[in-house]
Amino acid sequence: MPSASAPTTGTDSGLGLDRIVELLPEIGVAMGQTFTMLLVAIPLAILLGTPLGVWLYSASPVGLKPRPRAHRIVDSLVNTIRSFPFLILLIAIIPITRFIVGTTIGTAAVIVPLTINAIPYFARFVEQNLTQLGSGVVEAARAMGATRGQIVRDVLLVEARPALIGSITIMTVSFISYSAMAGLVGGGGIGDFAIRYGYYRYETIVMLVAIVLMIVLVQFVQLGGTRLARVLDKR
C-alpha cells in the first residue's frame, strides 16, 4: 500500500504558508499595536522616571541633599509598584485605566499600566546608575563652583549616559514581553495575535511566526541599544 506521509507533509507546509500569507494584514496590525505601546510607554517612563530617579539619588544618604525620611517613603512606594506582577497590576488599576482612556480593553488601555509600571522601573535604574558614578565627579564639580542643578544636568546625567542607554535597552526588552502578556486581556499587539490564533485556534505555525517576530524585535532593540551605548561611552 503506498505511503501518504510525504504528500501530507507537503500539503501541510503549503497550507501553513498560505495561512501566514492570509494573516499578514493582521500580523502587521499586531506589530503596529506593539510598537505603539512601546513608543508611548517607554518615552513617558524616561520623561517621568528620570527626575524621580534623580530625586531618589539626591535624597539618598550618599546624594547631593540627603532627606532620609522623605527618601524612605518614596523608596518604599517605588518598591511597592515594582513588586506587582504586571498582569496583576493591569487588573488592579482597571478603574484608573477606565478614567484615563475611557476603556479597559485595547492598546490604549494597556499603555496605562505599562507606563505606571515603567516609571518606577526606570527611576530605579537612574538612581543606581548615578550612585555608581561615585562621589569623585560630584566633589570635582563642587570644587569648580557648580550648583546642584548644574551637577545633575551637566555632570551626572552626562557621565551616566552610556549606563542610562543600557538601562533603557533592558527596560524596553522587558516591556516587549509585558506588552505580549497584555494579550491575555485583549490588549492587542503580537501577544494578543499569538494567543488568539496560536493558542485558542491551535494554529502552531502562527504561534511560531509570532515567537520569531518577538525574538527579532528583541534582538533589534538589544543590538541597537548596545551599539548606541558604546558610541556614547567616551572612556
Rank of each mutant, 00 (worst) to 15 (best):
M1E: 10
P2F: 09
S3D: 15
A4D: 11
S5M: 06
A6E: 14
T8S: 13
G10P: 07
T11E: 15
T11D: 13
S13F: 15
G16S: 07
R19F: 08
E22V: 13
L24I: 13
P25Y: 05
G28V: 14
A30H: 14
M31N: 10
G32Q: 12
T36P: 00
T36Y: 10
M37I: 04
L39Q: 03
V40L: 14
V40I: 10
I42E: 03
L44S: 07
A45G: 05
G49N: 14
S60R: 15
P61T: 12
P68K: 09
R69L: 15
A70V: 10
H71T: 14
V74C: 05
D75N: 11
S76K: 02
S76N: 11
V78L: 09
T80V: 14
I81T: 15
I81L: 13
R82L: 09
I88F: 08
I93Q: 00
I96M: 07
I96L: 12
F99R: 08
I100Y: 03
G106K: 08
I111P: 07
I116Y: 00
N117R: 03
A118K: 03
Q128E: 14
S135D: 08
V138N: 00
A140M: 09
A140G: 10
R142I: 02
A143M: 08
M144N: 11
M144H: 06
G149N: 10
V152T: 11
L157V: 05
E159W: 04
L164A: 05
I165P: 02
S167D: 09
T169I: 03
M171Y: 01
M171G: 13
A180T: 15
A182F: 00
G183W: 01
L184P: 00
G191K: 06
F193L: 13
A194R: 11
I195H: 06
R196P: 02
R196T: 11
Y200V: 07
Y200M: 06
R201W: 05
Y202G: 09
E203D: 07
A210W: 03
I215Q: 09
V216T: 07
Q219P: 11
L223E: 15
G225K: 11
A229T: 13
D233H: 14
D233F: 15
R235D: 12
